[in-house]
Lab assay of single mutants.
Amino acid sequence: AKPPKTVTVKVEVTNADGETQTRTVTLTNLPKDLKPGDTVTLPETGQTARIVEITP
């Protein structure tokens, strides 16, 4: 079996106070056609994050 493909992405997350924070997260099994501006759900927090940058 192939190991899951991990991708490092820079995302913007809005916290409970309405502040936008930029975080770098490593995600696995992202859709192939994901692009900056799309939103993903962070598995560890369940927060919705907007992708700023994808590092191949």
Rank of each mutant, 00 (worst) to 15 (best):
T45G: 07
E53M: 05
N29M: 04
K32E: 15
K5W: 12
R23N: 05
I51F: 05
K10R: 10
N29Q: 11
Q21A: 10
T14W: 05
A49I: 06
I54P: 01
G46Q: 07
V11W: 03
V7Y: 06
R50G: 01
K32T: 15
V11S: 00
Q21G: 07
T45F: 06
P3W: 11
T41M: 11
D17T: 10
K10C: 07
V25H: 02
T14L: 12
N29E: 15
T45L: 07
P4R: 08
L42Y: 03
R23C: 09
G37W: 02
L27Q: 04
T24M: 12
T20F: 07
L27P: 02
L42A: 01
A16P: 10
G46Y: 01
V25G: 01
I51K: 00
T26M: 08
R50Q: 06
A16V: 09
P56F: 06
A1T: 14
T6A: 13
K2R: 09
T24D: 10
N29K: 05
R23E: 06
N15R: 06
V11C: 04
T14Y: 06
D17H: 13
V9N: 00
V11Y: 10
T20K: 13
Q47H: 06
V40A: 01
G46P: 01
P3S: 10
D33Q: 06
K2G: 15
K35I: 06
D33N: 09
V40P: 00
L30W: 15
T6I: 11
L30D: 14
N15G: 11
K5E: 14
T6E: 10
A16N: 09
P31S: 14
D38K: 02
L34S: 08
L42I: 10
T39R: 06
T24K: 05
D17L: 10
P31A: 12
I54C: 03
V25F: 01
L27V: 11
K10E: 04
T8N: 07
K2L: 15
T24N: 07
T41E: 08
I54G: 02
G18E: 02
A16C: 10
I54Y: 04
T20H: 07
P4M: 04
P56L: 10
R23H: 11
T20D: 03
V9G: 01
N15H: 08
V11L: 09
P43F: 04
T48K: 13
T39M: 14
L27K: 02
G46K: 04
T41S: 08
R50V: 14
P3F: 09
E53Y: 03
T20I: 13
K32A: 15
T39P: 05
E19H: 13
E19N: 12
T28L: 03
T28F: 02
V13S: 03
T26C: 09
R50H: 05
K35G: 07
A16R: 09
A16L: 09
P3I: 08
T6F: 10
V9H: 00
K2P: 13
P36A: 08
T6Y: 13
G37T: 01
L27W: 02
V52R: 03
T14E: 07
E53V: 05
N15D: 13
P4D: 13
A16T: 09
T8I: 14
T14I: 14
P31Q: 13
P56M: 12
P56T: 13
V7A: 08
R23S: 10
V9C: 07
Q47C: 06
L27F: 04
R23W: 08
E19C: 14
A16Y: 07
E12I: 12
E12A: 10
L27T: 04
T6Q: 13
V11R: 00
V11N: 00
T39K: 09
P4A: 15
E44G: 12
P36M: 07
R23A: 09
T55Y: 14
R23T: 10
P36L: 13
G46L: 05
A49S: 02
T39C: 08
A16Q: 12
A16F: 09
I51N: 00
P3C: 11
V40S: 00
Q21M: 12
D38G: 04
I51W: 00
R23M: 14
A1S: 13
E12H: 08
T22W: 05
T6G: 13
R50Y: 04
V11K: 00
D38F: 03
T24A: 02
E44L: 08
I54A: 02
A49G: 09
I51A: 01
G46M: 06
V40C: 04
T55D: 11
P3N: 09
N15V: 06
R50T: 12
K2A: 15
T41L: 12
P36I: 15
T55N: 12
T8C: 09
V7F: 06
E19M: 11
Q47L: 10
D38P: 00
T8A: 06
V13W: 15
Q47W: 01
P4K: 07
I54L: 07
Q21L: 12
K5V: 14
T48W: 02
T48A: 10
L30S: 11
N15I: 06
E12W: 03
P3L: 10
Q21H: 13
P4C: 14
T39H: 11
G46N: 07
D33I: 07
V40Q: 00
E19G: 10
K5R: 14
P31D: 15
G37D: 03
T24Q: 04
T48S: 11
P4L: 04
P43H: 07
V40I: 15
G18V: 01
L27M: 10
T8Q: 12
T14A: 06
P3R: 05
I51V: 14
A49L: 02
A1Q: 13
V13G: 01
K10I: 15
T26A: 06
K32G: 15
P43R: 07
A49R: 00
V52Q: 03
G46T: 04
V11T: 01
P36Q: 06
T22H: 09
V13A: 03
E53Q: 09
K35H: 09
P4I: 13
A16W: 08
D17Y: 11
T20E: 03
A49Q: 00
T14P: 03
N29W: 06
A1F: 05
T26P: 04
A16E: 11
T8H: 07
T45P: 02
T24W: 11
L34Q: 02
K35D: 02
P56Q: 10
D33S: 09
P56D: 13
N29Y: 08
D38N: 03
T24F: 06
L42C: 07
I54E: 02
A49E: 00
R50D: 01
D38A: 05
K5G: 13
K2Y: 14
K5I: 15
L42T: 01
E12F: 03
V7N: 05
T55Q: 12
G18R: 02
L30R: 01
P36G: 02
T28C: 10
D17G: 07
T24V: 13
K32C: 12
P36N: 05
E19I: 12
V25L: 05
D17N: 13
T28W: 01
Q21C: 11
A16G: 10
R50S: 05
T26G: 05
P3Q: 11
P43S: 08
P43T: 08
V52C: 03
T28P: 15
P43N: 06
I51Y: 01
T55A: 15
G18Y: 02
V7Q: 12
Q21E: 15
E53I: 04
T55L: 15
T20Y: 08
K5F: 15
G18L: 02
T45D: 08
V7L: 09
T14D: 06
A1G: 11
K2E: 15
V25A: 03
D17W: 12
G46F: 02
A49F: 01
G37Q: 01
T26H: 14
A1N: 12
I54W: 04
V52P: 00
A49W: 01
Q21I: 14
T24I: 11
T45K: 03
T14G: 03
D17K: 11
E44F: 04
T39S: 08
V52M: 07
A1E: 13
V11E: 00
A16K: 11
T8R: 11
E44Q: 09
K35R: 09
P4H: 12
G46R: 04
V40W: 08
